[in-house]
């Protein structure tokens, strides 16, 4: 019955026009970035490398597909949570608003099966978004700009990664980015259990992300104790795969904190949904 629940949830997600907004938005945004870079990319790159050219000599094609993919990920990964929450925040509350949750809850399935079915379908949708982002960022960039060594400027300095050393970093980075987005998806599903309208959980999810991000970036001692445990602090952990050497301990810690958030959010959702009076 659980598999039926997942299957029917995916049918519903696939039939909703809003589910394609995310994919369409990624396609358009990647297209816009690639178009701009193709026209004026060298100016953009020289602006970044201007400060380094006094001490370093850059040779070869810096503006290549791998760098484009990194720039695209940097720019878009901040906006993807909204695209994910747009679908996952609606999974329970949207049905409550429509009245179909009442009909769904009278089927011979447990509330846990209903919620886990929705969570699994939401997780698959989030994976689809990440895969599409990856395909667009890596595939389209490499097609348009060609492959090359990746130059990454981070807080520790400049890292140059050989062309053959890049793909596994991207794949691993997508894995951690997926965990971060799954945390967002779980948060929005949890909030969705508490609401009977579909906009509330989506807006609240974004508000939580903004609030936690502000707390995380405000360099004041009062937040020092909680900052390492906020999931937003670990949403950019995918970038760590582009450091040399790769800080595996820090990545594992981030992954653990994200998984812990998923487990806590899901437990709250299950507890509440199993006790909820369905009145809508």
């Amino acid at each position: 019955m659980f598999l039926q629940a997942v299957y029917t949830e995916f049918i519903k997600i696939a039939a909703k026009p809003r589910s394609y907004l995310g994919l369409a938005a990624i396609t358009v945004l990647v297209g816009v970035i690639l178009f701009a870079m193709k026209i004026d990319g060298l100016t953009y790159i020289s602006f970044i490398t201007a400060g380094l050219e006094e001490s370093l000599l850059f040779e070869g094609d810096i503006l290549n597909g791998n760098l484009m993919a990194f720039i695209i990920l940097q720019m878009l990964i901040i906006h993807i949570p909204l695209l994910v929450a747009l679908v996952t925040g609606d999974l329970i509350s949207g049905e409550a608003a429509m009245g179909s949750l009442r009909m769904l809850a009278t089927r011979p399935v447990t509330r846990t099966q209903i919620l886990m079915g929705k969570f699994t379908a939401g997780a698959l949708y989030t994976l689809l978004i990440v895969l599409w982002l990856g395909l667009m960022a890596l595939g389209a960039s490499n097609l348009l700009f060609g492959p090359g060594d990746l130059m990454v400027l981070n807080s520790d300095g400049l890292v140059v990664l050989q062309q053959g050393d890049v793909l596994w970093r991207y794949l691993s980075g997508f894995g951690v980015a997926y965990l971060a987005l799954l945390t967002i998806a779980t948060l929005s599903i949890t909030l969705s259990c508490f609401s009977d309208n579909s906009i509330g959980p989506i807006v609240t999810t974004m508000a939580v992300i903004i609030l936690f991000t502000i707390i995380g970036t405000l360099d004041v001692p009062v937040f020092d104790a909680i900052r390492p445990y906020l999931f937003t602090t670990h949403m950019a952990a995918w970038r760590s795969f582009f450091e040399d050497p790769v800080p595996y301990d820090a990545i594992l810690e981030s992954a653990f904190i994200l998984v812990a958030h998923i487990a806590v959010f899901l437990s709250i959702a299950l507890y509440h949904f199993n006790r909820k009076d369905i009145l809508s």
Partner: peptide, 12 residues
Amino acid sequence: CIVEKPDFYKYL
């Protein structure tokens, strides 16, 4: 059962 009015998925 039908509880109150039957609410279906309008997009299906």
